Lab assay of single mutants.
Amino acid sequence: MQNSHSGVNQLGGVFVNGRPLPDSTRQKIVELAHSGARPCDISRILQVSNGCVSKILGRYYETGSIRPRAIGGSKPRVATPEVVSKIAQYKRECPSIFAWEIRDRLLSEGVCTNDNIPSVSSINRVLRNLASEKQQMGADGMYDKLRMLNGQTGSWGTRPGWYPGTSVPGQPTQDGCQQQEGGGENTNSISSNGEDSDEAQMRLQLKRKLQRNRTSFTQEQIEALEKEFERTHYPDVFARERLAAKIDLPEARIQVWFSNRRAKWRREEKLRNQRRQASNTPSHIPISSSFSTSVYQPIPQPTTPVSSFTSGSMLGRTDTALTNTYSALPPMPSFTMANNLPMQPPVPSQTSSYSCMLPTSPSVNGRSYDTYTPPHMQTHMNSQPMGTSGTTSTGLISPGVSVPVQVPGSEPDMSQYWPRLQ
């Protein structure tokens, strides 16, 4: 039975679970980093996980050691009161100082060594604690504590007292930064006198190289990059290397530039699409467009005044059976039934097929058609009795279509119309 579990990581490298990497692998990681390889490249070359490479390099940059820390136990506290007071002093002298600059000053002034120097995250935590204590304490208590930490007896009751030896409130920041720059020169002199001055200088240079600022491109470089971006948004590694040799930039910087440029292009394309949609959409909808001609068919113009009344309900007709019959029939052209047409008796099958359309009241044959006459024609229609054979009435077949029909004066039988409509 094995005491430890061995495995293979996602890159194909072998590791022992819970145990640190061998010293030979750690040394190779540092050597590759000094030669300029990126952590992701080191991870692929040595088949070590990216997190492990970053952790080893980060500890090497901070402490200069590649040895693993002790497994188990607690780390001794490195942010001692003396170190905290120095950090507060540096922050007062130059409020814009960075944590890694404070760390360098602690090393250069001999406050800490490589073994007990606090990390950048520890210094940031100390600065946050100082800021929170400043908010919790009152103004007087804060000034007393700062005077105690600074070891001075001057008056701290006013704002300019934060910067000793100065009279203009805006000047101390520059003086403090100048003092810090002077301390940086002392850093070089002190570290050069040490035993491991060369190694420390190499480590600091490598650290500065990794902690780079934003790349500033010249106009020629920007023009070359934009020209390549117009050709393709995704250049391959050969195109990037050719462009890197042409404009004297690292291939990694060119790759990052193209990634950022593609993101910018997507944002601009989104804005262009929004403007295009806004320009195509009308600002207001016309009133006429809300009524579609496919839904509402136009009603033909009436030929006679009587045809303006298109349904039985508008003429005072309360018989719903006839109203439904007229509205359900398709529109037909106007025609006239003459008196000489043969009077065919209704076929029983045809009569039964339209039995649902006729009223059940037996008085329908005896009703006159003056009910369908509009009010303004009552006088004219009353002067001509319906009993004469020459009287013409208008029957409504569908809305908007008038059918003048000659009705025999002897017997106005409704059943004569249905064979004609089939």
Rank of each mutant, 00 (worst) to 15 (best):
Q2M: 12
H5S: 11
S6N: 09
G7N: 13
G7Q: 15
N9E: 04
N9V: 02
Q10F: 04
Q10N: 06
L11D: 05
G13I: 00
G13W: 03
V14Q: 10
V16S: 09
G18P: 03
R19A: 03
R19W: 05
P20I: 02
L21E: 01
L21N: 03
L21S: 04
P22M: 05
D23Y: 08
S24K: 11
S24E: 10
T25M: 07
T25Q: 08
R26P: 01
Q27L: 14
K28Y: 05
I29K: 02
I29T: 03
V30L: 06
E31L: 09
E31I: 05
E31V: 10
L32A: 05
A33D: 07
A33P: 03
H34C: 11
H34S: 11
S35Q: 13
G36Y: 04
G36M: 04
A37E: 08
D41G: 04
D41W: 05
I42M: 01
S43N: 00
S43F: 00
I45A: 13
I45N: 07
L46I: 07
L46H: 05
L46S: 01
L46W: 05
S49W: 00
N50T: 08
N50R: 09
N50F: 15
G51E: 05
C52D: 02
C52K: 00
V53N: 02
V53G: 01
K55E: 03
I56Y: 02
L57V: 03
G58V: 07
G58P: 00
R59W: 05
Y60A: 00
Y61Q: 08
Y61R: 15
E62H: 09
T63S: 07
T63C: 06
S65G: 04
S65N: 06
I66K: 00
R67S: 09
P68L: 00
R69K: 14
R69Y: 07
A70Q: 13
I71T: 13
G72E: 03
G73W: 01
K75N: 04
K75F: 03
K75W: 03
P76Q: 01
P76I: 06
R77T: 06
R77K: 11
V78W: 02
V78A: 02
A79L: 13
A79Q: 02
A79G: 05
T80W: 02
E82H: 11
V83D: 02
V83Y: 00
V84G: 03
V84E: 04
V84P: 03
S85V: 08
K86N: 11
K86R: 14
K86D: 00
I87K: 01
I87P: 01
Y90T: 12
Y90C: 12
R92I: 09
R92V: 12
E93L: 10
E93W: 05
E93Y: 09
E93C: 09
C94P: 05
P95R: 15
P95Y: 11
P95Q: 14
S96E: 13
A99Y: 04
E101V: 11
E101K: 13
I102Q: 04
D104M: 11
D104H: 09
D104N: 13
R105D: 07
R105Q: 12
L106H: 00
L106G: 01
L106K: 01
S108W: 10
S108K: 11
E109S: 11
G110E: 10
G110S: 09
V111R: 10
V111S: 10
V111Q: 09
C112Q: 04
C112P: 06
T113I: 12
N114T: 13
N114P: 13
N116K: 15
N116Q: 09
I117N: 15
I117S: 11
P118V: 04
P118M: 05
P118R: 00
V120K: 15
V120R: 15
I123R: 03
V126L: 06
V126Y: 02
V126N: 06
N129T: 15
N129L: 09
L130C: 08
L130W: 11
L130Q: 11
A131H: 09
E133K: 14
K134G: 11
K134H: 04
K134I: 07
Q135E: 13
Q135P: 09
Q135G: 14
Q135L: 11
G138N: 14
A139S: 11
D140H: 09
G141F: 12
M142N: 08
M142R: 12
M142Y: 11
D144R: 12
K145Y: 14
L146P: 10
L146D: 14
M148W: 13
L149W: 05
N150Q: 10
